[in-house]
Simulated assay, not measured.
Amino acid sequence: MTTDGGGPTATTVQADEPRWYLSRYDDHVHAFDPDQSSTAYSAALCSHTAPNTRIICTDHGTRCLACLLIHGDQLADRNGDVSWRL
């Protein structure tokens, strides 16, 4: 992954949280699994895939709606707050 200096810092992101990076394939910011750094391609929560050379380390841009919804569900499950889904 490349960087432009605008991405998240280690102090703002928990180790198991997805990383919000810009995909140059569709120019949307997606939530990528942090455990994929050793692979040539990375997959976002929404199943969007891109080679690591096309992922920019920044969270500036239009966010992927599917990634936002999936991550919101994960947060609700983790924190026990699922009442909003009813």
Results as ranks from 00 to 15, higher is better:
1 M>A: 12
1 M>C: 10
3 T>Q: 03
4 D>V: 02
4 D>T: 01
4 D>Y: 04
5 G>Y: 02
6 G>C: 08
6 G>I: 01
8 P>R: 09
8 P>F: 11
8 P>H: 12
12 T>G: 13
12 T>N: 15
12 T>Y: 14
12 T>D: 15
12 T>W: 15
14 Q>Y: 14
14 Q>W: 14
15 A>G: 04
15 A>E: 02
17 E>C: 12
18 P>H: 01
22 L>K: 05
22 L>N: 03
23 S>L: 07
24 R>E: 14
27 D>F: 09
27 D>G: 00
28 H>E: 03
28 H>K: 11
30 H>D: 09
30 H>E: 08
31 A>E: 08
31 A>L: 06
31 A>W: 02
32 F>A: 08
32 F>Y: 10
33 D>H: 10
33 D>E: 07
34 P>T: 06
35 D>N: 14
35 D>T: 15
35 D>W: 11
36 Q>Y: 13
36 Q>P: 02
37 S>G: 11
37 S>T: 09
38 S>Y: 07
39 T>A: 11
39 T>L: 14
39 T>W: 09
40 A>Q: 05
42 S>G: 15
42 S>T: 12
42 S>Y: 15
43 A>E: 13
44 A>H: 01
44 A>G: 03
45 L>G: 09
48 H>N: 01
49 T>H: 07
49 T>I: 10
51 P>K: 00
52 N>D: 03
52 N>Y: 02
53 T>V: 06
53 T>M: 05
55 I>E: 07
55 I>H: 03
58 T>A: 01
59 D>V: 00
59 D>C: 08
60 H>I: 12
61 G>H: 00
63 R>F: 11
63 R>N: 06
63 R>H: 10
64 C>T: 03
65 L>V: 09
67 C>V: 07
68 L>T: 04
68 L>P: 00
68 L>Y: 00
68 L>H: 00
68 L>W: 01
69 L>P: 03
70 I>P: 02
70 I>M: 07
72 G>V: 06
72 G>W: 13
73 D>K: 12
73 D>W: 12
74 Q>G: 10
75 L>Q: 13
76 A>E: 12
76 A>Y: 08
76 A>T: 07
78 R>L: 15
78 R>D: 14
82 V>M: 09
82 V>H: 03
83 S>T: 06
83 S>R: 06
83 S>N: 05
85 R>H: 11
86 L>A: 05
86 L>E: 06
86 L>D: 06
